[in-house]
Design a protein around this nucleic acid. Structure first.
Length: 110
DNA sequence: CAGATGACAAGAT
DNA sequence: AATCTTGCCATCT
């Protein structure tokens, strides 16, 4: 089982047609500066949960390309395009599509 | 246990 | 603007 329920809780709240960066998720999850943990946490889950992982991208406003994703990286791009997000040279306007949460409802409070 | 790896980020060049 | 370097931390070998 995963050890970061907050991350999934937050990612799950990303609205349609918007995206969030790993750093942003990390910040909201209390993992400031630990964006890698977010990425890794999502990596193990993607195929096992209904989390909109495709709405989570890096701070450059582009989807990461890894040898392991082997096609799933292309799937992410497809899913985002399907949500009305326009890509320019594999990039999107973070200014325009970045999710700005007003309030996060998280079950956990430590 | 130690070294290498990785869906990242921010700063320096 | 693009690329390199360092920091971060969980997971793998």
């Amino acid at each position: 089982m995963s050890c970061y329920p907050k991350i999934y809780d937050i990612v799950r709240q990303i609205p349609y047609g918007q995206v969030a960066t790993y750093g942003q998720i990390a910040d909201l999850a209390g993992l400031v500066g630990k964006a890698r943990v977010v990425g890794y946490a999502l990596f193990r889950v993607t195929t096992d949960t209904k989390i909109p992982w495709h709405r989570v991208i890096n701070a450059r406003g582009e989807v990461s390309r890894s040898s392991l994703r082997d096609g799933n990286d292309d799937l992410q791009l497809l899913l985002l395009k399907a949500e009305g997000i326009e890509f320019v040279k594999g990039r999107l306007d973070l200014k325009k599509y970045r999710w700005q949460p007003d309030f996060i409802s998280i079950d956990d409070a430590d």
